[in-house]
């Protein structure tokens, strides 16, 4: 089964130049892909299309069997709830604690307080931050914030997990630990796309690679 499918997709920001050209690929359900390419190639832009924060300027995108270019707000909202995103710049809500940040996806779903607390405790332990739940996110190190971001992305058990350079700001040992978390999600059946420069990691955990170059996609 195909989870996400791009056909002839082009994208531009506002009236600017096209930053993605003729993108066509499909993600089988349960697959794991890397997305590589130099800085400015369009990795983040492609992920933005996938997590439905952006609409393509041409072509069609199909996610979970629905045409997302239809712009039906209700449909888009329910699809977004099936996607977990780890942002390149973390996007912590600064006035909330680590645990409150992680709880956000569950709050949006209207889950009860006791269940939320239970889930948060479990997931914080999974990323190895069980002693930092009440921490102010600004006081956490880059690697710890990255793990909070991952916990927040996976807490709602998404069908599709997208991570934008999650190992960009961490040392090799931690990078490997983070990749291990994504591997676990993948083994649980989650479809995963990880944008990364890290050749070593790709060799350590081999998966198909999408190569982006100046907005053009090559599969290898």
């Amino acid at each position: 089964m195909v989870l996400v499918r791009f056909d002839n997709v082009g994208m531009r920001y506002g009236l600017g130049p096209e930053v993605l050209h003729d993108i066509a690929f499909s993600l089988p359900s349960g697959s794991f892909h890397y997305l590589t390419g130099p800085s400015g190639a369009g990795k983040t832009s492609l992920l933005r299309l996938m997590f439905l924060a952006q609409q393509p300027s041409r072509g069609t995108i199909n996610a979970f069997g629905k045409d997302v270019t239809s712009k039906d707000r209700k449909v888009l909202q329910s699809l977004r709830r099936r996607i977990g995103v780890v942002f390149q710049e973390f996007r912590m809500v600064s006035h909330l604690s680590a645990a409150e940040n992680v709880a956000l996806p569950l709050r949006i779903r209207g889950m009860s307080e006791p269940s939320i607390r239970e889930h948060v405790r479990e997931i914080m332990a999974w990323v190895g931050l069980e002693h930092h739940t009440e921490a102010d996110t600004a006081t956490l190190s880059g690697g710890q914030q990255q793990r909070v971001a991952i916990a927040r992305a996976v807490i709602s058990n998404p069908d599709l997990l997208l991570a934008d350079e999650p190992t960009g700001n961490v040392d090799d040992a931690l990078a490997e630990r983070l990749l291990y978390l994504f591997e676990q999600m993948h083994k649980n059946g989650t479809t995963v796309v990880v944008a990364t420069h890290n050749r070593r990691l790709i060799e350590r955990y081999p998966h198909p690679v999408f190569q982006l170059d100046d907005g053009w996609l090559k599969k290898s």
Binding site: L52, K74, S78, R80, R82, R91, V93, L104, I108
Partner: peptide, 16 residues
């Protein structure tokens, strides 16, 4: 705006 954008990406609806 950034937090609202974050909530939207997470799938929050307008009433939330």
């Amino acid at each position: 705006a950034t937090t609202i954008q974050l909530l939207r990406v997470m799938g929050a609806d307008d009433s939330y």
